[in-house]
Nucleic acid binder design. Structure first.
Length: 860
RNA sequence: GCCGGAGUGGCGGAAUGGCAGACGCGCUGGACUCAAAAUCCAGUGCCCGCAAGGGCGUGAGGGUUCGACUCCCUCCUCCGGUACCA
């Protein structure tokens, strides 16, 4: 009867924890105690339910939280749902059911599954990004960002009311001032291309488009510009890069972020224009280059098809060709312009630019290998020292002029893109690249022809979506008497939030590229305030919005007066441990950091960074070593694992598979292995053959032997340290050794087994609680003091040392643990086999590593 | 191409300058049983050997060191990310 049966004990303890609110975290960390904010990346509640990948990171944080509570730390460990998302909206389009219905269902499934796994979340802090009470504050933060401009001098976001207004603007009156402010806000409007699918009557996300066709239905998709909201994340590029440095994050993730931000240092150079039909002499073309030292090798210029000067630079005889080329380029998607079109194309404009360093006239081309959105959208092309320019110049027979030679004077094959020394560069010849860059940049600056410049790969963040199921923007567009937008945008006052989603009769696309909220009822869409008629903003926010700041709301999720209470924020932030998938290494973390920095600048939060320590769990692969997916048929369902083996086994197995950050394949036999371990733990303490649940007869009051104590204290130390290192697989291995040792004994000292149950409890909390109860305790072990180890028990009187001869182990000797080196050497030499190896040889060197080994180096 | 991570028994993995393979799976043998399951005990890198013992061995090659899975150099393979950013 009393076999280890997770199916009964797991629900029992889950109910106990819930009833006793065992894991409710205090509003503020306990005074005088250290705090721990341990956070899981909250899941998107998909219709498929929990995946076995989810509990991996969740178990890791849970183990840390449970151990830390027992170590007297104030712990907050919340969970919630990133619940906006496309699938619910698609379901709504198909069925007419409100996306909220499907979303709530999915959340209920996720919640049930998470509870089934026994995580010690404080469920009273639960939130979903789709809760109106939550997105009220998402909208509040949006308005704060909207109300902020970035002061470059102070490198800080400031209220728009503090934006200095130039007098020539102020002179033009209120409308001009308003427009000027709008240009400087961190949230601003622009025209940006979207993927419009006429057949589906909707705008598609990039990932919904495959080869210019819709993924669903394979209908043609066209790119068309649409009014969109952007976030000026580029203003924070420098800080986002620099403030990454001190964070305790994986180096790989930091590198990814740095790379994504892509800061580069170079120079802007102005090339005067010559030969254009109607060009005044002062006109010039500005380029950005990271290699100003190659200026003497510039043999042509390229502007992107979207460059503002395309038409002015095109001479009449080239007009038709250039126009055709630009139109064609506009049709291409980003993908077509990069991957699919490795072959470079371009057309000559008919104009020439004057190279400022040598006065040479060089042709200006239009080519789509130059991006409008990077640098100035124009380049000086140096085919000898740039692969792309080399390819282009070769194709169009443009001269290639070498201006950098290798440092060692060896011949180089062009294009030569490394650093070297200058040649064919007049008075600069012989200068090493780095030095030349500095000199020429200074010279250009002196001449007023250029200046040092920094550029970023990072682009501003396209923040609007043409979707229903997202947070509405709390913004109004003023309308004139004719019902047209005046261009003036007004924020909904923060006191009037939330702006809830309107009722729609159905969710079918209305067939226009404008967002679905354009279908909203008049009374929602056209509010009248103080006699002025407005149209609401109908774009909605992207899924990122809700996940950008949820870590703050967890700390004060019921607050109806503020995003978060200051005192609470100060006391709990930052997040001390953040665990989640590597797929969020760039965007989620970057966006979140950006919002956090704005909130920091605006005094809402007190730390410059939200996440102090970050860990990415590895991917769990299918039994065949491939990525788990329905199509591969190798998906493991956590419900089934729990039914068959129990939640404790699932938790333990996922931690035992290997190091947390590694990818590792699933193995049901492995699950069965840890299930077996839990059975052994059970039998260590419980009499399985008795009719009633009672302690094993082997459990006795005997004083533990030295060996028992050594095992216990070694286990305490290893498990404690391994939890701190997040090295859960080795912690479990050490507990298995403990169990192997004591299983062999038919008299098992109580004094050793009881602390062991506490060590096990963060990993297999249900089994541990049950054992703890059988051991005679009336309440949960969740706050029992964590066992401490005593060095004294770890020491042994004698130790066995391997003895090497020339680095090969040839014997072992036993010596007193505190034996000095001479004694150790003497004992080692006296050993029969070692003596054999030493006789007749010349002893060159003797090495003793105290407590580790002895090595004799012999010759001859 | 570039950036990041990883290559160790039949398998998952351990050891971050000091006995390679902890722990688990699998496999083999034994105990218990009428038998099986369950459980418990023992063994298990490869090669030679009855054994004692010896040789080989951490993707490949080189180097540093008394000693290298671990540090350095060159290269190969796999996984993940990214790609005309001038």
């Amino acid at each position: 009867m009393p076999r280890y049966n997770p199916a009964t004990i797991e629900p029992k303890w889950q109910a106990y924890w819930e009833q006793h609110r065992t894991f409710a975290a205090p509003r503020m960390p306990a005074a005088g105690k250290p705090k721990l904010y341990a956070l899981d990346m909250f899941p998107y509640p998909s219709g498929d339910g929990l995946h076995v990948g989810h509990p991996e990171g969740y178990t890791a944080t849970d183990i840390v939280c449970r151990a830390k509570r027992m170590q007297g730390v104030s712990v907050v460990h919340p969970m919630g749902f990133d619940a906006f998302g496309l699938p619910a909206e698609e379901h709504a389009i198909k069925t007419g059911e409100h996306p909220r219905v499907q979303t709530e269902k999915n959340i209920a499934t996720f919640r049930r599954q998470l509870k089934m796994l026994g995580f010690s979340y404080d469920w009273s802090r639960e939130l979903a990004t789709t809760d109106v009470a939550y997105f009220t504050w998402t909208q509040w933060i949006f308005l704060t960002i909207y109300d902020t401009w970035f002061d470059r001098e102070q490198q800080k976001g400031r209220p728009i009311s503090e934006l200095p207004i130039p007098s020539h603007i102020a002179d033009q009156g209120a409308a001009a001032i308003h427009a000027y402010q709008d240009e400087h806000r961190l949230a601003y409007q622009t025209e940006a291309p979207v993927n419009w699918c006429p057949a589906l009557g909707t705008v598609l996300a990039n990932e919904e488009v495959k080869d210019g066709k819709s993924e669903r239905g394979d209908h043609p998709v066209v790119r068309m510009p649409l009014r969109q909201w952007m976030m000026r994340i580029t203003a924070y590029a420098d800080r986002l890069e620099k403030e990454l440095e001190p964070l305790d994050w994986p180096e790989g993730v930091k590198a990814l972020q740095r790379n994504w931000i892509g800061r580069s240092l170079g120079a802007e150079v102005d090339f005067a224009i010559r030969g254009g039909a109607k060009l005044p002499a002062r006109d010039s073309l500005r380029v950005y280059t990271t290699r100003p030292d190659t200026l003497f090798g510039a043999t042509y210029m390229v502007i992107s098809p979207e460059h503002a000067m395309v038409s002015t630079l095109t001479t009449p005889e080239h007009k038709a060709v250039v126009k055709a080329y630009c139109e064609q380029a506009a049709m291409k998607s980003d993908l077509d312009r990069t991957e699919l079109a490795k072959d470079k194309t371009g057309v000559f404009t008919g104009s020439y630019a004057i190279n400022p360093v040598n006065g040479e006239a060089i042709p200006i081309w239009v080519a789509d290998y130059v991006l409008a959105t990077y640098g100035t959208g124009a380049i000086m092309a140096v085919p000898a020292h740039d692969e792309r320019d080399f390819e282009f110049a070769t194709k169009y027979n443009i001269p290639i002029k070498q201006v950098v030679a290798s440092k060692d004077g060896e011949e180089v094959t062009l294009p030569f893109c490394e650093q070297g020394v200058a040649v064919n560069s007049e008075k600069f010849d012989g200068l090493p690249t780095a030095e030349f860059k500095k000199k020429i940049t200074a010279w250009l600056a002196e001449q007023g022809l250029g200046r040092e410049a920094v550029n970023y790969k990072l682009r501003d963040w396209l923040f609007s979506r043409q979707r229903f199921w997202g947070e509405p923007f709390p913004l109004l567009h003023e309308l004139d008497a004719a019902g047209n937008k005046t261009g003036r945008v007004v924020a909904v006052p923060k006191e009037s939030l939330p702006v809830d989603l309107p009722h729609l009769d159905d969710f079918k696309p209305h067939g226009r590229p404008e967002p679905p909220l354009d279908k909203a009822p008049e009374e929602w869409l056209y509010p009248v305030i103080d006699g002025v008629r407005y149209k609401r903003e109908t774009n909605t926010m992207p899924q990122w919005a809700g996940s950008c700041w949820y870590y703050l709301r967890f700390l004060d999720n019921k607050n109806s007066h503020a995003v978060i209470d200051h005192e609470i924020e100060k006391a709990w932030m930052p997040v001390d441990l953040y665990i989640g998938g590597a797929e969020h290494a760039v965007l989620h973390l970057l966006y979140s950091r950006f919002w956090h920095k704005v909130l920091y600048d605006r005094g809402v939060v007190s730390t410059p960074e939200p996440f102090q320590k970050l860990v990415n769990q590895g991917m769990i692969l299918g039994e065949n070593g491939e990525k788990m997916s329905k199509s591969r048929g190798n998906v493991v369902n956590p419900d089934e694992v729990v039914r068959e083996y129990g939640a404790d086994s699932l938790r333990l197995y996922e931690m035992f598979m290997g190091p947390l950050p590694d990818s590792k394949p699933w193995s049901m036999e492995g699950v069965s292995g840890v299930r077996n371990f839990l059975g052994r733990v059970w039998r260590l303490i419980i009499d399985e053959k008795a009719d009633e649940l009672c302690l094993s007869e082997a459990l006795v009051d005997d004083a533990p032997s030295d060996e028992d104590l050594r095992m216990l204290h070694a286990t305490i130390r290893a498990v404690t340290e391994d939890i701190d290192r997040l090295s859960f697989n080795t912690a479990i291995a050490r507990m298995m050794e403990f169990v192997n040792h004591f299983t062999r004994l038919d008299r098992r000292p109580w004094a050793c087994l009881q602390p062991f149950v506490l060590l096990l409890s963060p990993f297999a909390p249900h089994a541990a609680e049950e054992l703890w109860q059988v051991l005679g305790h009336a309440t949960t072990l969740a706050y029992e003091p964590w066992p401490e180890y005593d060095e004294a028990y770890l020491k042994s009187d004698t130790i066995e040392l391997p003895v090497q001869v020339n680095g090969k182990v040839r014997g072992k000797v036993t010596v007193a643990a505190d034996a000095d080196q001479l004694t150790v050497l003497a004992v080692a030499k006296a050993d029969g086999r070692i003596a054999e190896y030493l006789t007749g040889k010349k002893l060159v060197k003797e090495i003793v590593v105290p407590g580790r080994m002895v090595n004799f180096v012999v010759a001859g």
